[in-house]
């Protein structure tokens, strides 16, 4: 059924397309889905991706934080136009197409599974280059022209601390290590950033398409906002995204020095203390998100097992916070 709908949609803007084939859902909860499919064309098929909120759902699952699918499409296209690794946006859905809200983009081949990228032979040559490359990409994202950016929420360190504090207390489960982290963050709040730029918001291993040649695409702009650009550099260093390669802070790929060097090569300016501050913030944020999974598990009618198990990963962030704030010996 979705192939018929997509076929009609594609025919209206892809010249010579005769339909679509091989539609398969890649991921998605109730409110957001990602589909892969091929556009059938006499000159050769073309791989595409649909990212959408199905009909009946709004464009953003968590309205307070999410940028929304329309904004995501604009951001990806701006990144593509700026020469950053990003999929080309081919079409933004319209209501008459009855496919819901969202957009269709060119499919970028490559790997997104962090563990494979960090371990498979295929990526052995790319791995040592990735930290520096990601630094350059982050600098490129942070210098996208403000005038062309969509309307996004603005975030500061102070507001982020307040958000995390509220979410933690809302869970009503005492965690002395989180209390310690919240105290540390409040005591080390660097205040408003001199630079305020577009921040990707979820720039990490797992949201990247990687090939043997390096980064091919940055995905998942859902949490994009305006704020301190050092947030993106801190988030990619959070230990949870090193997937076991704990001595390689930049996504499990390489050193902070390489990440920073790439960032400065591309015209960015690094404030290492702010990056560290955001790494602590990010570690706590992921911990609180894990805790929230436990609540979702309890509240959901079908008690999803995967969320239950993520709830028991909160302690991973507690040990990482202690390693950051109270290192032993």
């Amino acid at each position: 059924m979705i192939e018929d709908q997509l076929g009609r949609c594609v025919a209206s803007w892809y010249k010579g397309a005769t339909g679509v084939t091989g539609a398969a859902k890649l991921s998605g909860g109730a409110s957001q889905e990602t589909w892969t499919f091929d556009i059938v064309h006499p000159g050769g098929n073309f791989g595409a991706i649909l990212r959408r909120a199905p009909p009946g759902y709004g464009a953003s699952p968590s309205p307070s934080r999410a940028a929304g699918l329309d904004a995501e499409a604009v951001l990806m296209q701006l990144a593509y136009d700026a020469g950053l690794p990003s999929p080309r946006v081919m079409h933004v859905l319209t209501p008459e197409e009855r496919l819901g809200r969202g957009f269709i983009m060119a499919r970028v081949e490559g790997e997104t599974l962090a563990r494979k990228i960090l371990r498979d032979e295929e990526f052995a040559q790319a791995r040592p280059l990735l930290a520096r490359q990601l630094g350059r990409i982050a600098a490129g994202i942070h210098s996208l022209p403000r005038a062309r950016l969509p309307n996004l929420r603005s975030m500061t360190a102070t507001r982020e601390i307040a958000d995390l504090d509220r979410e933690y207390r809302g869970a009503d489960w005492p965690r002395p290590v989180f209390e310690l982290a919240l105290r540390w963050l409040a005591d080390h709040d660097p205040g408003p950033s001199r630079q305020v730029t577009l921040v990707h918001g979820d720039f990490r291993n797992g949201n990247l398409i990687i090939g043997p040649d390096g980064v091919r695409a940055v995905l998942d702009w859902e949490l994009a906002h305006f704020g301190d650009p050092m947030e993106d550099l801190g988030w990619i260093c959070v230990n949870s995204w090193r997937f076991g390669e704990i001595d390689k802070p930049a996504g499990g790929f390489g050193s902070r020095e390489d990440l920073f060097a790439g960032y400065e090569e591309a015209g960015g300016k690094v404030d290492a203390d702010r990056v560290m501050f955001w790494e602590v913030m990010g570690t706590l944020r992921w911990g609180i998100m894990c805790g929230r999974m436990m609540q979702r598990f309890r509240n959901a009618p079908d008690h999803p097992m995967e969320q239950a198990v993520i709830g028991r990963r909160t302690s991973e962030t507690e040990i990482d916070l202690l390693r950051l704030l109270a290192p032993r010996g």
């Binding site: 076991g244 704990i246 028991r312 990963r313 302690s315 991973e316 040990i319 390693r323």
Partner: peptide
Amino acid sequence: DQPNYASYKRE
């Protein structure tokens, strides 16, 4: 919870 977590094994 996670006796195979790398930070835990290191510590």
